[in-house]
């Protein structure tokens, strides 16, 4: 149940970043957040890089959710 709630929250936060609802987040989307979040551009870029597991420049919901899970200490795998 906790996992379910966390996934739901991750989904919600994902759509905050993915304004155009493309289904993925780019670095450009991330940079747009710097107006709203108290993070520096290079911090946002570092966050993006650490969430973008396969490093293809597109942050998927799965990658985002997994990152959110590790922030919460929840493992969604398995």
């Amino acid at each position: 149940e906790v996992q379910q709630m966390a996934k739901q929250k991750a989904h919600e936060l994902f759509s905050v970043c993915d304004i155009e609802q493309k289904g993925f987040i780019t670095k450009r989307d991330m940079q747009r957040l710097q107006n709203e979040l108290p993070l520096l551009p290079d911090q946002l870029e570092a966050v993006f890089d650490s969430l973008d597991d396969d490093g293809n420049g597109y942050l998927t919901l799965e990658e985002f959710t997994e990152g959110f899970g590790s922030y919460l200490g929840i493992n969604f795998m398995g």
Partner: peptide, 29 residues
């Protein structure tokens, strides 16, 4: 996992914290 830079966990926490604060929906629809 490999490639996780030191300190990135704190940064992630910072990021998600800010995002959660920015989006304080919380309640059930």
């Amino acid at each position: 996992k490999p490639g996780t830079a030191p300190g990135s966990e704190g940064m992630l926490a910072n990021f998600f914290n800010s995002l959660l604060n920015k989006n304080p929906k919380g309640g059930t629809p």
